[in-house]
């Protein structure tokens, strides 16, 4: 202990030359944000592969297309960070979309109220998921798998497996209009990202999320309200599904109870995993998920531009997920 008078900070200064500092920073950056490097490389490759890639129209279109899944993936990040999983988001998107459309069409609600109903429904489904998982002590995988079929079936039943189409064309503004050259859904996505980032990085709730995912027993004994944190994570996930539903339904002013949101949960989970969030929880970043979704977007975009058969695109995506996880295991 004799050499401990110097503060740890002074020690860092002492031990590392500026050169080394850069190296440490790089190491840290690589460990946490290797997905950003992957994105940059992919972006460059895509620009070289197709002259249509790097055009404003293509890029804004691509951004609009990913915003719904992107928003879902952000909610999914919370759930995976606590060591859970939510398979129900795609179906919840269909169900909350049905709520939004039906409120307008069948119950004459204003657009604003209809959206509120939809968001509320999303929170409610998340609450039910959370309650069953915490108090019912049923595994998240099972709980949300059940919710996936229940939510879808509820939507199908309500609309007789058909679509509900809106009459008020104002509603389509959200999904179709541009603001300063960018589609409105992209703004919604950015807002969701920023709020989530602040929640995770700047608040006690964020710390609690990481603590529960990292070691829930230790978190419990450190006075972390693990039950409440868990429920909140699923509610956030339900809410993002509902936000996604608003954008999705407003695009065509209609919800298809059979196909809306179908398989979205897989893309959302894939984006989170590619983004470097550990599937067992406790480690991961919102920024990672954002780049995870961008990587998925560029991939499908470039494959479309190059006329690669959509039937083989799934295989490429799957391979990318495996590579991403393999790379994470290394570091």
């Amino acid at each position: 202990m004799s050499n401990m008078q110097t503060s740890p900070e002074a020690k860092v200064e002492e031990r590392s030359s500026s050169n080394n500092k850069f190296f440490i920073w790089l190491q840290y950056f690589w460990a946490n944000y290797s997905v950003i490097f992957a994105f940059i490389i992919l972006f460059i490759l895509a620009s070289i592969a197709s002259e249509h890639f790097l055009t404003p129209l293509n890029l804004t279109n691509m951004l609009r297309q990913i915003s719904v899944i992107g928003i879902l993936a952000i909610g999914m990040t919370f759930v995976i960070l606590i060591g859970g999983i939510d398979l129900s988001v795609g179906s919840v998107l269909a169900l909350t979309g049905t709520v939004v459309m039906a409120s307008q069409v069948d119950f004459g609600a204003s657009i604003f109220t209809a959206i509120l109903f939809g968001l509320f429904a999303g929170l409610l489904v998340g609450l039910v998921n959370g309650l069953v998982i915490t108090y019912g002590k049923i595994a998240a995988f099972i709980t949300t798998l059940a919710m996936m079929t229940i939510a879808r079936s509820a939507a199908l039943y309500y609309a007789d497996a058909g679509a509900i189409s809106g009459l008020n064309s104002d509603y389509t503004i959200i999904g179709n209009e541009y603001l300063f050259g960018l589609p409105i859904p992209v703004y919604v996505f950015i807002i969701v990202v920023v709020i989530s980032f602040i929640l995770l990085e700047k608040t006690a709730f964020g710390r609690h999320i990481y603590a529960v995912g990292g070691n829930s027993r230790a978190a419990h004994l450190s006075a972390v309200p693990i039950t409440r944190v868990t429920i909140a994570a699923y509610m956030i996930c339900g809410l993002t599904a509902a936000i996604g539903a608003v954008i999705e339904t407003s695009r065509l002013n209609s919800v298809s109870t059979s196909s809306s949101g179908s398989m979205y949960e897989l893309d959302a989970i894939a984006a989170v995993i590619i983004g470097g969030t550990r599937l067992t929880g406790g480690q991961g970043k919102i920024i990672g998920t954002v780049f995870g979704i961008l990587i998925l977007a560029i991939l499908s975009n470039i494959m479309n531009l190059m006329n690669i058969s959509p039937y083989i695109q799934g295989a490429v995506k799957g391979a990318i997920i495996l590579v991403a996880v393999l790379l994470q295991k290394r570091s």
């Binding site: 710390r207 609690h208 990481y210 603590a211 990292g214 027993r217 230790a218 978190a219 450190s222 006075a223």
Partner: peptide, 24 residues
């Protein structure tokens, strides 16, 4: 390892985990 610390969390965040209320 099992009940005292969140091993993957930083030293700093472990130290203040039970008392985050104080810093709100």
């Amino acid at each position: 390892k099992e009940t005292g610390l969140i091993l993957d969390m930083s030293i700093a965040n472990n130290i203040t985990l039970p008392s985050l209320k104080k810093y709100k």
